[in-house]
């Protein structure tokens, strides 16, 4: 049976008066990886921001666990077990790695934070040796590990990742994709992924959405999307970008 985790109905949103998203309908299934692909400026990053409450919603609903959370402020969403990883500035540069992990568990109680940090460090053992370093001094890959580790600490049910492999070497990107799959399989996390690297991302995904100009161009299982004629056209276009 398919359990819907998040259902988005007729969503219109943007920044101030500038509308970016038009009448979006979509669903995210529990324990699956759902990937949103699309060309630059198609509104896929804005989509994640909107789900987390960082943009202006004009109309529409975001149903999470049978509740409309469209107008819940971001810091309260964090308490609803939804985690969002922005593309850039996703760690606190002035804080140490350890402090970053601790702050990620801000909404949890003390013992739980310890336990979650243990779990995060098991998935990301790379962080164990650099706990006392300031996050600002880390390399791009280390920073991304930390950001994803922080998401794990938060004990979220839904993880929204905005282009986690951007600006990383192909080899490192592969590692990150591996970790995403690991997080789904080990913890049953529901993952919503936005990726520029569309083909590779869909290969690890269960479901997919293609955004064009702020609208859903087509949707389906990841496999369907990969084999879709239009996707092939677009992905050629994207790789040309």
């Amino acid at each position: 049976m398919v359990i819907r985790m998040i259902k988005i109905k007729n969503l219109n949103a943007g920044y101030g008066k500038l509308q970016i998203l038009f009448d979006i309908n979509a669903k995210v299934e529990k324990g699956k990886i759902t990937t949103v692909v699309g060309p630059n400026g198609s509104g896929k990053s804005t989509f994640l921001k909107t789900l987390f409450g960082l943009t202006k919603i004009y109309s529409g609903e975001i149903i999470f666990n049978n509740k409309n959370i469209a107008h819940v402020p971001p810091h309260q969403k964090a308490r609803m077990k939804i985690a969002y990883l922005p593309q850039t500035n996703n760690v606190f540069a002035d804080l140490t790695v350890e402090e970053n992990l601790k702050i990620a568990g801000y909404v949890l109680d003390k013992d739980k934070v310890k336990e979650r940090i243990e779990i995060a460090l098991n998935i990301f053992p790379e962080l164990k040796n650099i706990l006392k370093r300031k996050a600002g001094t880390l390399s791009g890959g280390q920073r991304q590990f930390l950001a994803m580790g922080m998401a794990l600490v938060r004990d979220a049910e839904v993880l929204m990742l905005d282009e986690p492999t951007a600006q990383l070497s192909p080899k490192l990107a592969e590692v990150i994709f591996g970790k995403i799959v690991e997080m789904r399989d080990e913890f049953g996390l529901t993952i919503l992924l936005v990726e520029q690297n569309a083909k590779r991302a869909l290969e690890i995904s269960d479901n997919g959405y293609m955004f064009v100009s702020g609208k859903v161009a087509f949707e389906g299982t990841a496999e369907e999307l990969l084999n879709h004629e239009k996707f092939k056209e677009y992905s050629l276009g994207i790789t040309a970008l």
């Binding site: 987390f52 960082l54 402020p73 971001p74 810091h75 309260q76 964090a78 308490r79 985690a83 969002y84 990883l85 922005p86 500035n89 996703n90 760690v91 606190f92 540069a93 002035d94 804080l95 402090e99 601790k102 702050i103 990620a104 801000y106 909404v107 922080m150 938060r154």
Partner: peptide, 23 residues
């Protein structure tokens, strides 16, 4: 904990919000 949250929200208020900190 509040102090670390305070430093976090001084550096990057919107990220701090995503961590559940009431900026």
């Amino acid at each position: 904990k509040f102090g670390i949250a305070l430093r976090a929200s001084m550096e990057n208020p919107s990220l701090a919000q995503t961590m559940g900190i009431d900026v």
